[in-house]
Simulated scan of single mutants.
Amino acid sequence: MDTDAQFMDYLKDVDHDFTGWDFSFITGTGRMQTQLLPWSYGSIAKTAIQQSKIMLDMGTGGGEFLSLLRPLPDHVYATEGYEPNVAIAKKRLEPLGVKVIEFVDDAILPFDNGQFDLILNQHESYSAIELHRISSSGGNIITQQVGWTDCYQINDKLGVPLNEDPLNEDFQNWCLEKALEELEGSGFKILESSEAFPVQRFYDIGALAYYLKAIPWQIPDFSIQGYMNELYNVHCMIKEKGYFDVNQHRFLIKAEAR
């Protein structure tokens, strides 16, 4: 197959279904791989769950991650702000006794003051003040966040400025230092924190196109036709080098409400 025909064939992957937060179409086949982090959010979360009586999982997606952390406490809530995921999360989590709630505003969560002794938050936005309000005294929050420089090499190659959306100014310069400052200023004691920039590798242009369709915030106006030339240049680079590397931006915080 010549380069042009192979390129167009790969781009058909953008039409493959994506549901919940499941990238197995490209990760299960090894077409996209990610360097390991120096911590395990799942291990930290599972240990904390064993000591919890009432917990919240913020931004549960389709409930894939939370469902794997069983046994869960007697009282578990999960929030999800992306409407297509809500029904998926309810189908997966409600049989496990989890109450799934759709919400749209980080600053107004539908929970009581001091309701939770544990809040999990993986790659979900939040209001530090609101987290403190719904945390019990001595309650823990554990969050793994995506930093603002995440996969910036994709933007460079496609010629799109990184995180310059005026409707999402809070994400600009979002990093460990800024998050720690906000949490401490809202009444949390930091128990542990870490930041890392692991490599994420794409082995073909179809995997990259599929990924960009699934995460529209990276390239907000992404379409195959709109970025055909840029995608072809990346395809040629992959053909020559064997892969396209980008750097994720991740940080982890565990904190206690005072």
Rank of each mutant, 00 (worst) to 15 (best):
D74G: 15
D74T: 12
V76Y: 05
Y77M: 07
A78L: 09
T79C: 03
E80T: 04
E80F: 05
E80H: 01
G81Q: 08
E83S: 11
P84E: 11
N85C: 14
I88V: 14
A89C: 05
R92P: 14
E94S: 09
E94C: 08
L96C: 09
L96F: 10
V98W: 08
K99R: 15
V100H: 04
I101H: 11
I101F: 08
F103N: 13
V104P: 02
A107M: 04
A107Q: 12
I108D: 13
I108S: 09
P110G: 11
D117K: 00
D117A: 07
L118K: 08
I119Q: 13
I119R: 06
L120F: 10
L120C: 06
L120S: 06
N121T: 05
H123D: 06
E124Y: 06
E124W: 01
S125G: 15
Y126P: 03
S127F: 00
A128N: 03
A128R: 01
I129D: 11
L131R: 02
I134W: 00
S135C: 14
S135A: 14
S135H: 04
S135D: 02
S137H: 10
G139T: 02
N140Y: 08
I141G: 02
Q145A: 12
Q145M: 12
V146E: 07
G147H: 06
G147N: 07
W148E: 02
C151K: 15
Y152V: 13
Q153T: 08
L158V: 12
G159N: 07
P161L: 11
L162Y: 04
L162A: 10
L162N: 15
L162Q: 14
N163L: 09
D165V: 07
L167V: 03
L167F: 08
E169D: 11
E169F: 06
Q172A: 13
Q172M: 10
E177A: 12
E177N: 13
K178G: 04
L180V: 10
E182D: 08
G185H: 00
G185K: 03
S186W: 01
G187D: 00
F188C: 00
F188E: 00
K189Y: 00
L191F: 03
S193G: 05
P198K: 03
V199L: 11
V199Y: 05
R201P: 05
Y203Q: 05
